[in-house]
């Protein structure tokens, strides 16, 4: 790796100060499992001059409930999420999603904040510089989206614009299904953004001087059915081809509430509102699950090689909603 300056931040303020001072040329490092890969392959349009270690900021790895919300510090590791009794009992989709990420060694260092902020896996975007130079594309600010005319088997089928890369985060899918929010901090103050709104086709909404501090999820008032499924060619290592998180409430034998979120098909976690509409007011069963699956990706426009993802998404929805 090309060298950079390095600083161990002791507080969020200190980290924010460095981000401000270096004006887009500093990068925060938590688990490092994504950032180091980007640096080694020289993927980023601008190589950072400073890496700010935020693992040294104390007290940001909590997983706790207060009166209204579940709160997770941005530095909570995926292994911590997977092993949390609280999450296992009440927020199972978060555990399932955390366990579905990469392999054990990665989960031992990767953080929830990093999982949400990680860069996309598009193989054009990530093409390594030392194999003949990286590929300048729309996401890097100049050029086309190569996936449109290229090999797009893993790319977006819905909601994409100038860039067809999909959101690589499994946690984002689970958290969106729980109506999760992220607290972003900067010197201008704090703002809360819904996990689903954090992503947009060309980049996430995090500003260069912002810091993800916390992820929160409303406490459930009633018992819910939760399920997260991830489709990959291989169980470990792989990023989701398609994932689905479904969180439903059944009252008096009918669906009273449903949140169905699909990962791997769009630039962000895709909330399948049409599928939810199909469910609400109906009795759980195979037929209604199939209807929801059919409706979920209505309006999807696949590229040349990724129509299969729609079929996979339908299968996963059926299995997450009812089985």
């Amino acid at each position: 790796m090309k060298t950079f300056d390095h600083y161990d931040a002791r507080s969020i303020d200190e980290a924010l100060g460095l981000l401000g001072k270096h004006r887009g040329k500093a990068r925060l490092n938590a688990g490092g499992t994504d950032l180091l890969g980007l640096l080694k392959d020289r993927v980023l349009p601008q190589y950072p001059e400073l890496i700010v270690n935020i693992k040294t900021i104390p007290g940001l790895d909590y997983i706790e409930e207060d009166g209204e919300r579940l709160r997770i510090g941005a530095l909570a590791r995926l292994c911590d999420l997977a092993g949390s009794r609280l999450l296992q009992e009440r927020y199972g989709v978060i555990c399932e999603a955390a366990l579905a990420v990469a392999g054990p060694q990665i989960r031992n260092v990767a953080t929830i904040g990093g999982n949400l902020c990680q860069d996309v896996r598009c193989w054009y975007y990530r093409y390594p510089a030392h194999l003949g130079g990286g590929m300048l594309c729309a996401r890097k600010g100049r050029g086309p989206c190569f996936a449109v005319k290229g090999d797009n088997r893993y790319h977006a089928v819905i909601g994409a614009g100038k860039c067809f890369a999909v959101c690589p985060s499994d946690l984002a899918v689970a958290l969106a299904a729980l109506d999760g929010h992220m607290t972003l901090v900067s010197h201008r103050g704090e703002r809360r953004v819904g996990v689903g709104d954090f992503f947009s086709p060309l980049r996430n909404v995090l500003e260069a001087d912002e810091f993800v501090k916390e992820i929160d999820v409303p406490k459930a008032s009633v018992p819910r059915l939760q399920r997260f499924l991830k489709f990959t060619l291989r169980k470990p290592i792989d990023f989701a081809v398609v994932s689905v998180a479904a969180v439903t409430e059944v009252k008096d034998g009918i669906y009273s509430d449903a949140r169905i979120v699909i990962g791997g098909v769009a630039p962000g976690p895709f909330r399948a509102g049409k599928a939810e509409e199909e469910l609400i007011g109906c009795e759980p069963g195979d037929a209604v699950a199939a209807q929801a699956a059919e409706a979920a990706l209505e309006g999807a426009r696949p590229l040349s090689k990724n129509a299969w993802k729609i079929e996979v998404a339908r299968a996963l929805i059926k299995r997450t909603v009812y089985r």
């Binding site: 390095h6 161990d8 490092n29 490092g32 499992t33 180091l36 890969g37 080694k40 392959d41 890496i51 270690n53 693992k55 292994c79 990469a102 392999g103 054990p104 060694q105 990665i106 031992n108 260092v109 290592i237």
Partner: peptide, 27 residues
């Protein structure tokens, strides 16, 4: 692989298996 995908560089850090190719020594 030097990219955190093969486990060849696995060491223990405070008892847990981690990938030494994806950690900065300085950290």
């Amino acid at each position: 692989c030097d990219k955190g995908a093969c486990g060849g560089c696995t060491v223990l850090m405070d008892g847990k298996a981690v990938l030494s190719c994806m950690l900065l020594t300085i950290e």
